[in-house]
């Protein structure tokens, strides 16, 4: 058997794939956080809960209404996005004039409520969500065995990430968004409906979290706790990347996922910690984050 650094190639690549999968979710979630933060100056603590919510909506659509994975891929982001819009209209929009920390605290409370509700009705154990038949099984790539669904998740997350990036960097709507990030008053004076833009942005961010949730459902079990543990790692990712750049958030997400996978190969005990250790090092060397603009 071929070895790399004294480790079988199969195991090495296997962990690297796990890292890439985790990285895909880090990237999608930190992207959503960055989009929301960029315009609203709110750190969306409920992002993890919305991700969990997305997975659960998918699960409930399947078990109660018999709606399968592919329609859910459209429906779930819509539902979670609408939920986000409602939250923004009813509550978050009242907090923009205050210290940004209040936004964090509000969304923290929201996360607790969402998690509490699903925990109350579904317990803490995970619920399996079957891989859609089209993507069942795997492909032998010659050097390793790739489960089809995992390959799909990596591709899908890349599409989502760069789609969002293109939406923000390359379209007219995106240019409004970027302009409103720089100077909301001026943009409003030009006749752009900034409050609507804010609402849509939070909805878009929430929808991204929901989409990540339904993508994750067949890989991880659908459980009320799936979001909260993830969101803290994503926060560390965001600190490492700095929230100034969308592309930065995406790249950092994949990088840290891979770093985690690699650590699992060489020193499994530290794999939970490595993202945080990297965060600490980055804080020492480059406090503004790798792609950060503010000091």
């Amino acid at each position: 058997m071929t070895m790399i650094f004294g480790i079988p190639v199969q195991a090495f690549l296997g962990q690297l794939l796990v890292g890439l999968i985790n990285g895909s979710f880090y990237a999608m979630l930190s992207l959503g956080l960055a989009v929301i933060f960029g315009l609203l100056r709110v750190i969306n603590f409920a992002h993890g809960a919305q991700y969990m919510f997305g997975a659960f909506v998918g699960y409930l659509l399947l078990t109660h209404l018999g709606i399968g994975y592919w329609p859910a891929l459209i429906l779930v982001p819509l539902i979670v996005g609408v939920f986000g819009v409602v939250v923004e209209r009813l509550a978050l929009s009242r907090l923009y004039d205050l210290d940004p920390l209040y936004g964090l605290l509000f969304t923290f409370g929201l996360a607790l409520v969402l998690e509490g509700i699903f925990r109350y009705y579904y317990g803490v154990s995970g619920n399996p969500y079957a891989v859609p038949p089209l993507l069942a099984g795997g492909t032998n790539l010659g050097f390793m065995f790739l489960p089809n669904y995992r390959g799909w998740v990596v591709v899908a997350s890349l599409i989502v990430c760069f789609g969002t990036w293109a939406l923000i960097e390359k379209t007219r709507l995106g240019s409004y968004l970027r302009a409103a990030t720089e100077n909301p008053r001026l943009v409003q004076a030009f006749g752009v409906n900034v409050p609507l833009l804010l609402t849509l942005t939070y909805g878009l961010g929430s929808a991204l979290a929901g989409l990540a949730g339904i993508l994750a459902a067949p890989i991880y079990q659908v459980s009320p706790l799936m979001g909260s543990d993830l969101i803290i790692v994503v926060f560390a990712v965001v600190v490492v990347g700095g929230m100034g750049s969308i592309l930065g958030a995406i790249i950092t997400g994949y990088m840290l996922g891979l770093a985690e996978g690699l650590t699992k190969v060489f020193y499994p005990e530290a794999s939970n910690l490595v993202v945080f250790v990297i965060m600490a090092i980055v804080l020492l060397v480059r406090p503004a984050g790798l792609f950060g603009r503010d000091a």
Binding site: F106, G109, V113, E115
Partner: peptide
């Protein structure tokens, strides 16, 4: 009644109207 729901709700109410 689940404690997390209660604490979450108090959080939201405090932040919105009872800062």
């Amino acid at each position: 009644f689940p404690v997390t729901i209660a604490t979450g709700l108090i959080f939201m109410v405090c932040v919105l109207i009872f800062r």
